[in-house]
Simulated scan of single mutants.
Amino acid sequence: MRRDRPPRPVAVGDVVTVYSEALRVWTASQVTGIDTTARCAAVLELDWSGPEPSSVADLGDDVQPLRLKHHSWGGTLSHCNHGWVLPRSFRVIGSLPPLVTAPSRSYSAAWGRGEQLARQRRWDSGDHEDWNAPYALTRTADELAEEYTRNGVRPDVKHLTVRGITRLDCTRLVAAFPNLTRLCLSGNLGTLASAAALNRLPRLQELTIHDLFGMEPTDCLLPRQVPDVENVSLYGIPADYAAAMRKTWRPHVQDGVELEISGARKPEWIGANAANPLRDWDGRKHITRTSYRKAVAQYKATREAFRAEVAGDEQRGDLLEIGRAFGAAFNALDRRTGFIETVEREELFDALDFLVEEAQEAAGRDLSTARAALVEGVDSIRDW
């Protein structure tokens, strides 16, 4: 497979069309740029919908870009960079001179399927309420259990997101939601049981699994069972399952399957990192191995110092100093490689909450005052 052009042929100026579940008709977009280094395609959504077009001529004589005026967009073009793999459900129907030539500064993983056009159409009709797709459902794992009991089978649900999974049985999920086209599952070292059952979702197009384990190579999603799949995104999953999925789906990239698999973990890694709230930094693209090791070492040092302090004669000044040491250590780390961005900053404060909750459980008493002093110390010195 050549790396200097998209695996599924697409060029600047190409107009592509796809069926929109949001509008229940077809929509269209134009490729306005291709970045071979970043392996991205700039895609401009068009202000058009209708029956499936066979050529550009079916779009009419006045093809216009979609300008977003709903909510606070203010007339911004719906123009975004995506991975350059043209999803298999999209079809090239011809070419036009690019309607815009300026590059886009926006990025999104998924190519648009008319959701923004649906929002704009509702806004133009006078409906200014937030639009939530009626076929999309987001639940925590606990809420999903209630959903099973309350509603039984939900054939109307096409997009399902389940967060906070401790343990999830895919057999039961598939039985309750047989018509899924998009499925996103995430946990925190949770267990995904009977993952092979996902092969019984014949309409599935997109599968995302983050930070879940328990899957075996025999649980691999199979192209002959789910022929419409065009996006597989896996992170923080068992290494042998990751290898099986990569081997199975890599040949289909040229057919329009976006494949992203990273953070493959061996069993010993899972055991060693169960109590490490920074474990997701391991292998993150912009965090070096050295920065990760030093970050974990500093977290452990802070954890031990905090636990020792709250177990003895707790002093606010000492807690402030523990926080300052934490903040200063990450100042130094960030100066070297500049890896602490918004997400990492939030994760560092989540890590502090994690160590406080651990210590609180061990001490059997409320440590909110100690936490406040720890965070105050961090905030007094941090520059990230």
Rank of each mutant, 00 (worst) to 15 (best):
R2N: 04
R5P: 00
P6V: 03
P9E: 12
V10C: 10
V15Q: 01
V25N: 07
V25M: 09
W26N: 13
T27E: 06
Q30Y: 10
T32L: 10
T37S: 05
A38V: 00
R39C: 03
E45N: 13
W48R: 12
P53E: 10
H71T: 12
G75Q: 08
T76E: 13
V85D: 02
V92C: 11
S95F: 01
S95K: 13
S95M: 11
P103V: 11
Q116W: 15
Q116A: 15
R121D: 03
R121W: 01
A133V: 05
Y135D: 12
A136F: 05
T138S: 14
D142E: 14
A145M: 14
T149K: 13
P155D: 07
T161K: 09
T171A: 15
F177A: 01
G187A: 04
L198W: 01
L201H: 07
R203I: 00
E216N: 11
E216C: 12
P217L: 10
R224P: 04
V229F: 03
V232S: 01
G236Y: 10
G236F: 10
Y241T: 02
V253H: 02
Q254W: 04
V257G: 01
S262F: 12
G263K: 12
I270G: 08
G271H: 11
R284W: 15
A295D: 05
Q298E: 13
Y299F: 15
R307V: 06
D313R: 13
D313G: 09
Q315E: 14
G317A: 09
G317I: 02
R324V: 08
F326R: 04
F326A: 09
D334W: 14
G338A: 15
V343E: 15
A363R: 14
R365F: 06
D366Q: 06
